[in-house]
Simulated assay, not measured.
Amino acid sequence: MKEKKAEKQKYALVTGGSRGIGRAVCIQLAKDLDYQILINYNSNKAAAEETLKLVEEAGGKGELLPFSVTDAEAVKSALDNWHQTHENDIIEVIVNNAGITQDGMFMWMKYEDWSKVIDTSLNGFFNVTNHLIQKLLVNKYGRVINMVSVSGLKGTPGQTNYSAAKGAVIGATKALAQEIAKRNVTVNAVAPGFIRTDMTNDLDEKELKRMIPANRFGEAEEVAHVVSFLASKKSGYITGEVININGGIYS
């Protein structure tokens, strides 16, 4: 008797998936779509394990995949090892969510605060997506979703580095979308405004919400719903877009 071929398992990779918006995205994808979730993290293993537990509680399955998106060799090694142990499986969805802020006025900004932010958002996008893109093209299906920001669209004072990084990813999103649309691979960006997460804990919410027409900060789950839609088959004719989730702030 012939052995039955193992069914190909499909995965969604979320970089920076251990906390905040990344965690909400992992949980939402597990709820909505038939993907196992690859939860990438850099150093906070406990937070990543908590995300995995929440994914499983939501009825999904997942794995932890530690690497720093800024380290091209580490990205290559981690993904190559993963493919070796998952020979028949495929990563169909890439959510480039990893990002950091190092805020400060440009005139006093240190080079390391500039390069760290650019490295994480922009080079992180390149390192992960460039390594996986060929498999999506051969497969003739895929979704690339880049987490950007209102800062990348309108610029935010005190965040010249972050605005530059996210603005660059927006440009890359639009260009790459046109390169690979014929292969049924879409590339879109999601641009949150002020979202209640660890990253915004130190902000004066009471003061800032006055400039938001919706008069409140957003929730990570609201961002995750949009990412989940873009990761689904329903979004096949949307590519090269930047979708704002900012409560009406000019962008």
Rank of each mutant, 00 (worst) to 15 (best):
K10L: 15
K10S: 11
A12I: 11
V14T: 02
G16K: 13
R19C: 00
V25Q: 00
A30Y: 07
D32W: 04
I39V: 15
N40L: 12
V55Y: 01
E56S: 09
A58N: 04
A58S: 11
G59W: 12
L64D: 03
A72L: 04
K76G: 07
K76L: 01
S77D: 12
N81L: 10
E87D: 01
N88I: 07
I90R: 01
E92S: 14
M105E: 13
F106E: 04
D113M: 00
K116H: 06
K116L: 11
V117I: 11
I118Y: 06
I118E: 08
N123S: 08
G124Q: 06
F125Q: 05
F126R: 08
N127T: 04
T129V: 07
T129A: 04
H131N: 14
I133Y: 12
Q134I: 02
L136G: 02
N139P: 07
K140V: 08
K140H: 15
Y141T: 15
G142S: 08
G142C: 10
G142A: 09
R143G: 12
R143M: 07
N146S: 12
V148L: 02
S151N: 12
S151D: 10
Q159P: 02
A165R: 02
G167L: 08
A168L: 09
A175S: 15
A175Y: 03
L176G: 11
A177Q: 14
K182T: 06
N188M: 00
N188S: 02
N188H: 05
V190K: 10
F194C: 05
I195L: 03
M199A: 10
T200F: 05
N201P: 02
N201C: 03
A220L: 05
E222F: 12
V227S: 07
V227A: 07
F229W: 12
L230S: 12
S232G: 13
K234N: 14
S235C: 10
Y237G: 04
I243R: 04
I245E: 06
N246Q: 09
N246H: 09
G247S: 08
G247C: 10
S251F: 09
S251Y: 07
